[in-house]
């Protein structure tokens, strides 16, 4: 795909290893502003590691990671405050702070990051909870009192509360029933795609990938082996993609059953 606008996120030959294990072996990807890209791939192929490298939670061994043209590959955690303000993240397990009530989870970035007044932040949190279909009373509950689907919604509310420019989704529908998974997909589209926010998601759920992604990229053995439009994923003509999309045990991808 040829991009006419400068990419929001630019990845060039990103590599990351843990000891002897090479997890990312040279990832190249450009994500345009307001574009939603979904990365698919088996477990342990480096999807989460890639997102963590972009977020600065992990540091890439080599390569280039640019956000809005700024190289953040080796920016130390303490200096990432400005770039991290552009980010929102929905974690696979929602990663809500269980010591804080729901509203404070949603308002966390506003209170700690933007030093917003607590009353104002609470008001914003309740508004954001409404956007993800949760009643104001939910704000006073503890995260442990919520179902998995509600926790994901709160996680989504937290991710978008600070009006980020880029949102990352780590397995947004994993562990949810099909109906709740579709609710989350719709919320992602409403809260992110419709607002022109750039999104990078990783998932195994092909229904979700087709629905929320403009483009889909497949990662295998630490490299992106196919990148194309979401509507083309079923006719990619790539044996790896075909096997993954159709969930077949037989094919070029051999599952590592023993370590």
């Amino acid at each position: 795909m040829i991009m006419t606008t400068p990419p929001k996120i630019h990845l060039k030959d990103v590599r990351k290893a843990f000891g002897d294990k090479q997890v990312l072996s040279g990832v190249d990807l450009d994500i345009a502003p307001a574009e939603s890209v979904v990365i698919i791939g088996g477990s342990g192929t480096g999807k989460s590691v890639l997102i963590k490298c972009i977020l600065g939670i992990l540091t890439a061994d080599s390569g280039t990671i640019e956000v809005d043209g700024t190289d953040v590959t080796h920016t130390p955690a303490g200096s990432r405050v400005v770039v991290n303000k552009k980010f929102g993240m929905l974690f696979q397990s929602a990663a809500l702070f269980d010591s804080l009530p729901v509203w404070e989870n949603v308002a966390f970035g506003l209170i700690q990051g933007e030093q917003m007044n607590r009353d104002e932040a609470r008001h914003r949190a309740i508004e954001t909870l409404a956007k993800v279909g949760l009643a104001p009373e939910v704000g006073d509950l503890s995260p442990s009192e919520l179902s998995g689907g509600m926790q994901k919604r709160v996680g989504l509310a937290r991710a978008i509360a600070g009006n980020p420019e880029i949102v990352f989704f780590d397995e947004p529908t994993t562990g949810l029933d099909p109906i709740m998974a579709d609710v989350i997909n719709d919320l992602i589209i409403t809260c992110v795609k419709d607002k022109g926010i750039t999104a990078l998601s990783i998932t195994h759920d092909m229904h979700s990938a087709r629905k929320i992604g403009d483009r889909i990229a497949m990662i295998y053995e630490g490299r992106l082996i196919w990148v194309g439009k979401a509507k083309d994923v079923d006719t990619a003509g790539n044996a790896f993609v075909d096997q993954f999309v159709h969930g077949r045990a037989e094919g070029p991808i051999k599952m590592q059953l023993r370590r």
Binding site: L55, F91, S99, G109, Q112
Partner: peptide, 24 residues
């Protein structure tokens, strides 16, 4: 408490919310 926050990605979440885990 901090160990549980680590294994449930809550410490990573702090980083993404522009909050330094050391300071917090």
């Amino acid at each position: 408490e901090i160990g549980t926050m680590r294994v449930t990605e809550q410490i990573d979440a702090l980083t993404t919310l522009s909050t330094n885990p050391f300071k917090y």
